[in-house]
């Protein structure tokens, strides 16, 4: 653990990323205290530029506070991204594990399936899914999960295939342990590090996906997420630059931080692989 922390801290970007994420999470948690009113609440005149009266980041077309929107938006955006990533990790790991462990027909089918999903333009797929199943928190989470599991499944499958033949697994098999037990107690713990690394990158891409869906008007209509604020600002781009600039910066910083954390984790967890990293 100490080694890990040491290795992680050598990656300056990763440390900066952690700090930013902590700040964003703090903002999300403290939203109630900083902005006691609802983000939908009209608190000021419409179209107040930043740093006027008592609004820091300005107000939108109806007079709602952009700062409040970003703080509460952080909550929803992070939550949506985390839940959808959790769902797709659960699915991706299970599928990858079964496919890699059992091999054969199952594996062929799974690989075919993964290839199919990797061929379909994933953003298009997400849009089609949410649009047709009616936009809501659940459908957005579902759509993000559906398009983000394949790469992870592929990764886990490869891990399992190589670990399967290692001595400690073979030993467990000879000892007569059940397959489920071997998968859960022997192989899975040993293949967690790439999962953790992809996890942080998946949260980042989930945020991007969610914001793009909300931007197109495919978010939950009761949820003020960052993408929603930018989407609502589009028609008044010329009149209120602050409506689109600030939430965009919030997305950028969060996603950037998560990517940096992912890299740092990768370097810390797989020192050997660090050099081979591609995107």
């Amino acid at each position: 653990m100490k080694d890990f922390l040491h290795a992680f801290c050598r990656h300056k970007g990763g440390v900066a990323g952690v700090i930013v994420i902590i700040a964003v999470a703090g903002l999300a948690l403290a939203a109630n205290w900083i902005f006691p009113h609802d983000p939908w609440e009209i608190v000021n005149a419409p179209f107040m530029p930043p740093m006027t009266d008592d609004t820091l980041l300005g107000t939108d077309t109806l007079g709602r506070d952009i700062g409040a929107g970003i703080a509460y938006g952080a909550r929803l955006t992070l939550l949506l991204a985390a839940v959808s990533t959790a769902v797709s990790i659960l699915f991706g790991v299970s599928v990858g594990a079964i496919s890699g462990f059992y091999g054969g027909r199952v594996d062929q089918a799974v690989v075919g399936f993964i290839e199919l999903f990797q061929t379909i333009p994933s953003f298009f797929l997400a849009v089609v899914l949410v649009a047709i199943l009616t936009p809501s928190m659940t459908t957005v989470i579902f759509a993000i999960a559906v398009v983000s599991w394949p790469p992870l499944a592929r990764l886990v499958r490869a891990e399992f295939m190589s670990l399967k033949n290692r001595e400690f697994v073979q030993a467990a098999m000879l000892a007569g342990q059940s397959n489920a037990r071997i998968i859960l107690t022997q192989i899975l713990p040993n293949s967690l590090s790439p999962v953790i690394v992809s996890g942080s990158l998946m949260v980042a891409s989930a945020i991007l996906l969610e914001s793009a869906l909300s931007f197109l008007g495919l978010g939950d209509p009761n949820a003020m997420t960052w993408g929603y604020i930018i989407g609502a600002s589009r028609s008044v781009l010329r009149d209120a630059w602050w409506m689109s600039v600030f939430p965009g910066v919030a997305i950028l910083l969060t996603v950037l931080s998560l990517n940096l954390i992912g890299e740092a984790l990768n370097d810390a967890l797989n020192p050997k692989l660090a050099r081979k990293r591609t995107t």
Partner: peptide, 18 residues
């Protein structure tokens, strides 16, 4: 969105359904 806020003030909680 405005109606949701507005009616919230008289205790009528509105959920916007897409």
């Amino acid at each position: 969105e405005y109606i949701k806020q507005n009616l919230g003030k008289i205790g009528v909680q509105v959920t916007i359904e897409n």
